[in-house]
Amino acid sequence: MVEGSVALHWRRYPERYSLIGNHCATCKTDYFPPRVFCHNCRRKGKLIVKDMPRTGKIVAFTEVFVGPVGFENETPYFLALIDLGNGVILLTQIVDSSRDRIQIGANVKMMFRKIQDNDKEGVINYGYKFKVTE
């Protein structure tokens, strides 16, 4: 957690709150987080804002027993790489899911949750976490 970084987090609200990325209309590639230009088409690509899928599958996961500063109250917790099915992989916490259902290949969906709340400025950071679905 970078201290004194309200602006840093504010800039990321569209991604973290609403899973908004972008899409290259030229080569059909999705980007999350959004890119400033398409890495395939470079200057010739046309990027447009796009909502990312809010469901996906677990690619890999780990249970974190020693967390960083700001996560003391949540330890241990599960972190996972999620494949959104559109070429995008993101890293997130898995919550509200029984331990035996957190498996590679499990279906997950996005939730909106508090991420960190010990910022010295009193700022509470929110964002996406995922849970295993039926």
């Binding site: 890999a60 974190v64 967390g67 960083p68 917790y77 997130t92």
Partner: peptide, 25 residues
């Protein structure tokens, strides 16, 4: 990556743990 990894509670052991799990699988 501060914005997409550490923000979500990733640590260095956690990132390499994900690589380890894929290698094991």
């Amino acid at each position: 990556d501060q914005e997409t990894e550490l923000f979500h509670g990733a640590t260095f052991p956690a990132l390499y743990a994900l690589l380890a799990q894929k290698h094991m699988e």
